[in-house]
Design a protein around this nucleic acid. Structure first.
Length: 987
RNA sequence: GGGUGCUUAGCUCAGCUGGUAGAGCGUCGCCUUUACACGGCGAAUGUCACAGGUUCGAGUCCUGUAGCACCCACCA
């Protein structure tokens, strides 16, 4: 429980951990509410459910800005639905992240001077588990700091026993359906990690290379000398092939030309002698060859190039693999080259070919180089045995699900990206030659027969059935792609393959919140797997958010040294610590100096603390539909100020409520009905009406996943309506000496509005709202042990009151008019001035009578006097509110010259508007074609501008006269004194 | 080669179904006003990338151009 009295300063660092610990201990996050926590009224015990599964972060990693952003969105959604009374589950967990995690542990071992292969597989995996245990708590701690209301009791890990069982089950079922197969074909091979990768894990980027034009000598035509009919190429003694990878020439098994290419037609069927090997390889014809590129002859290396592989299959070419797994030349290559790493071999081969005069030319060439996304190593197409998911059959229903709207992308555009990929989807290589991960549930006997089974026993049984006796079996060494288990996440975490109550309640989940970077890796696969195993989509909505970048729009990365840790934004961090964090453990240590310089420049004093709520609110504001989101600390600072504002208005409110409440606090109901007379003032009615509008705006924004809109609506209401106007207006009414009924109304309104606002803010700013609410609620008779389980505000409780809005609008217009005069004339706001009103309508008079006190108070006026028609008035500065003219006598306050300048500006601006309105209404087609409403509105505007024009002209006239009079005085007096025709002393 | 975005105030960005260009930060001026100086009041600033088109009317719709991003793809 928070201290009874609100501390004067807002200290998120003290509040947030304490509040979270209480929530967690009380079990408020649980999807199955603990006994006794039932603060919900009976009507809220609805049967509706809401579920989000977290995109599981790497178990041994730490959360970065993107996670924090994503978690904020998911938490906001979760909290909103929980407050709506739905049974809500935000499912937490982590991913084993096969390659990434294995690499980290390998690096740790290296630091100890141990290589992975020196350990047994069991020992290594043991090591990884130990590391997981050691570092696995980090994410949990971070998420708690962020306020994430996940059901910790249901936390899952992709390698938990239960989830591992799901993985095996899924594999076996797909295999039994014939959708998983094992095959020897070219895969993307990482020669450093020594594993296959899926297409998605290979990133191609343009790099500078060369195009080598090699001469392959022609083998003389056998069986005597048919004269070569055409073409110089045919009559020369060699063919020229162009390649970007000369080292693969050792594995060439053909040279291809286009069948329509006249230059080479006669050579089709003949052979060339492959240099350095002495092998003769055929010249074949294939449409694939583009005659316009290079020489029009392509060397074909089926074992080392995806295209060549396809051509090889078409032409039944042999495959000659020339590489070892780590991309050194193997025993298929000439002895002199054997054992060389691929790029050394390249140089050596070029040298040798050059020595033999077999290099036609070398030209610079830009090409796409494929690299492994983890290792950065250049990927080799490599011939190996791997497991594949035959994807086409799974893709069809997954495409249909998005087409017919069972899964909806938000923003909708991303469905195009999804379709594009799904329509061109390739079989998915799911085996990895790693040790960390789900071992493939396949066994082999000595004859090489495969038994896919749910366990060794089942495999043995299969083998027995086949052979009629027990045979020794060996399990496949490979593990599954991390994304295979991730694809099952929405149902494996809920207990699948068992039919658990959770699965029944929460599947399909409601929304997946994720970044566009993993639409293919994860989103698409979850949809396919969900449909395959659950016969139902895994989620109804996919909310795709942008990528958090730094203030300069750069992607945050360790090597750039521009990473901002969300926890540092929350807690603050000194410069030395920040520098240490950014410059330690760099893969390229030489970058440290530059990073240090940039960091010192951007954060000369480190980062101050901002608190979680400020950070979360910033994330909400940032959640536009843009795909790049720049994170700027200045915005967090602004939002910390916002928190501070909220804190202080709450302090005021609590003080005011207590001071006016008397000794028996609990008597009043939330609406203030109860003992004694209660009267709602216009201001009370106005703020209630505005609150209703705000609730509606927030509801709509959340329904559309426009967290930026929700944040804006909340910010504006809180700061610009509640704090700036309502509280200022009702201060007098809340004083002890004020009228009892009015005071009761103001108290009830202030209490209710603030309490409701806290609930409305809670999903985005959970901590500060709880901290205040726990103090405020009892003051106004609201019960409940936490705001988390308090009901979500209903707009219908605060119906629109247009009359009140209109009246407050009138008041604000006048106050702003006076403030404008004071502001521009550098008159302190608190200096009391008289206000004269001219051309007041009956309506104005009525309003005035009702709101005179409010005007005097907020515009800080000494008196308000209505001028009768034609009544003379002292020279004054003027402001116009529609037809009403506000006059502040200038005497002793305002220089005629500055007032004249001010009026001049107003005239200018008005003139432009006037001209525009006149032109519009002068256009007959506008009047004829535009809707009547629009025309009428335009007419009203025009009238308004005309009034202003006239009023301003009158004022200018009067002040101009005065200015002329005062000019000599100015010169004499050297500044201070305007002439004052009537009264008062100098300033 | 295909595809998708973006281009609005000094900076970062909103602007939904076309009808008076907005916010935050920054800038300038004034203000100790008993909730808040992490504050209050006021002010300045925009050929809405460019060129056409549709329309009475375009930041908003259509076409094209330019620049900048990103994604997918096997051109040796």
């Amino acid at each position: 429980m928070p201290p009874a009295e609100m501390p004067k300063t807002y200290s998120p660092g003290e509040i947030e951990p304490r509040v979270y610990a209480r929530w967690e201990a009380a079990g408020y996050f649980a999807a199955n509410p603990p006994q006794g926590a039932g603060t919900a009224p009976p009507s809220r015990a609805a049967e509706s459910h809401y579920c989000i599964v977290i995109p599981p972060p790497n178990v041994t990693g730490t959360l970065h800005m993107g996670h924090a952003f994503q978690d904020t969105i998911m938490d906001a959604l979760t909290r909103t639905h929980r407050m709506r009374g739905e049974r809500t589950l935000w499912q937490p967990g982590t991913d084993h992240a096969g390659i990434a995690t294995q690499m980290v542990v390998e690096r740790q071992l290296e630091a100890e001077g141990i290589r992975r292969k020196q350990l047994t597989r069991e020992a290594f995996v043991e090591r990884v588990w130990a590391w997981k245990e050691q570092s696995g708590g980090t994410i949990g701690r971070q998420m708690r700091r962020l306020g994430a209301s996940v059901d910790w009791s249901r936390e899952r890990f992709t390698m938990d026993a239960g989830l591992s069982r799901a993985v095996i089950e899924a594999f076996v079922r797909l295999y039994e359906r014939g959708l998983i197969y094992r095959g020897k074909r070219l895969v993307n091979w990482d020669p450093k990690l020594l594993t296959a990768l899926s297409d998605l894990e290979v990133l191609s980027s343009e790099e500078q290379g060369s195009l080598w034009h090699l001469r392959y000598p022609l083998v003389p035509a056998s069986g005597g000398s048919e004269p070569t009919q055409t073409a110089d190429a045919a009559s020369s003694e060699y063919l020229v092939v162009a390649t970007t990878r000369p080292e693969t020439m050792l594995g060439d098994t053909a040279v291809a030309v286009n069948p329509k290419d006249e230059r080479y037609r006669a050579l089709i069927g003949r052979s060339v002698r492959l240099p350095l090997t002495g092998r003769d390889i055929p010249i074949i014809a294939d449409d694939y060859v583009d005659p316009a590129f290079g020489s029009g002859c392509v060397k074909i290396t089926p074992a080392h190039d995806f295209n060549d592989y396809a051509i090889g299959r078409r032409h039944n070419l042999p495959l000659i693999n020339v590489f070892t797994p780590d991309a050194h030349l193997n025993e298929q290559t000439p002895e002199a080259l054997r054992g060389l790493p691929r790029f050394t071999a390249r140089e050596r081969i070029i040298e040798q070919l050059a020595a033999q005069g077999l290099i036609e030319r070398i030209e610079p060439h830009k090409l796409m180089i494929p690299r492994g996304d983890r290792s950065g190593e250049i990927i080799e197409p490599y011939l190996t045995d791997q497991w594949y998911v035959s994807i086409a059959e799974l893709a069809v229903p997954a495409i249909a699900a998005v087409e017919d709207g069972r899964v909806r992308f938000v923003p909708e555009n991303w469905s195009k990206t999804y379709f594009q990929w799904m329509h061109n989807i390739q079989d998915w290589c799911i085996s990895r030659q790693l040790w960390w991960g789900h071992r493939i549930p396949a066994w082999y006997d000595d004859a090489g027969n495969i038994y896919v089974a749910r366990g060794a026993q089942e495999a043995a049984a299969q083998a027995r059935a086949r052979h009629g006796r027990d045979v020794p079996l060996r399990q496949d060494d490979d593990v599954l792609d991390t994304w295979f288990s991730a694809g099952l996440w929405p149902f494996s975490t809920l207990g699948w393959p068992d039919a658990t109550p959770e699965l029944a309640s929460f599947y399909p989940t409601d929304v997946l919140v994720t970044g566009f970077d993993i639409i293919f890796f994860w989103v698409a696969r979850m949809i396919m797997m969900g449909l395959a195993f659950m016969d139902e989509v895994p989620f109804r909505t996919v909310y795709i958010h942008g990528l958090i970048r730094d203030a300069e729009g750069q992607k945050m990365s360790k090597s750039k040294g521009n990473v901002i840790d969300p926890i540092d934004v929350i807690d603050g961090i000194g410069l030395p610590a920040l520098l240490a964090k950014r410059t330690s453990g760099l893969m390229q240590p030489h970058l440290a100096a530059g990073i240090e310089r940039a960091t010192r420049k951007q954060f000369p004093n480190g980062m101050p603390a901002h608190g979680t709520d400020a950070l979360r609110f910033t994330f909400a504001q940032l959640a536009t539909q843009s795909r790049d989101l720049r994170f700027d600390l200045a915005r967090v600072e602004a939002n910390r100020n916002f928190c501070n504002k909220l804190w202080n208005v709450a302090r005021y409110a609590l003080g005011a409520l207590e001071a006016t409440q008397g000794p028996a606090p609990r008597a009043l109901g939330a609406a203030g009905a109860g003992a004694g007379p209660t009267e709602l003032s216009v201001a009370d009615r106005w703020i209630r009406s505005r609150l209703g509008v705000t609730i509606r705006a927030v509801d709509e924004a959340l329904a559309e996943y426009r967290f930026d809109f929700a944040a804006t609506a909340l910010y504006e209401f809180t700061w610009n309506e509640l704090c700036a106007w309502y509280v200022e207006i009702v201060k007098p009414a809340l004083r002890a000496e004020a009228d009892v009924a009015g005071r009761a109304g103001a108290r009830a309104t202030l209490g209710t509005v603030l309490e409701t606002l806290l609930r409305l803010l809670h999903p985005l700013m959970p901590f500060i709202t709880e901290e205040i609410w726990l103090r405020l609620a009892p003051q106004i008779g609201v019960t409940g042990e936490t705001i988390m389980l308090a009901p979500w505000p209903r707009a219908s409780d605060f119906p629109r009151d247009l009359a009140a809005e209109q009246q407050i609008g009138w008041v604000r217009g006048i106050i702003e008019g006076v403030r404008q005069i004071k502001g521009e004339m550098d008159i302190p706001l608190m200096r009391r001035v008289p206000l004269l009103l001219s051309s007041a309508s009956r309506e104005d008079l009525a309003q005035l009578q009702q709101h005179e006190g409010m005007l005097a108070q907020l515009a800080v006026l000494s008196e308000i006097r209505v001028l009768s028609q034609g009544e003379a008035h002292p020279p004054s500065a003027a402001a116009l509110v529609r037809e009403l003219t506000l006059l502040v006598p200038m005497a002793g306050l305002i220089e005629p010259a500055s007032e004249l300048a001010r009026l001049e500006k107003l005239v200018q601006r008005n003139r432009q508007e006037l001209a525009r309105a006149r032109a519009k209404l002068g256009n007959q087609e506008f009047v004829n074609n535009a809707p009547g409403e629009v025309v009428a509105q335009e007419r009203a505007r025009l009238a308004d501008f005309e009034h202003r024009e006239a009023g301003l002209a009158r004022q200018m006239q009067q002040v101009r006269v005065l200015a002329q009079q005062s000019e000599p005085a100015d010169r004499r007096g050297g500044g201070g004194g305007a002439t004052r025709p009537a009264t008062e002393g100098a300033p």
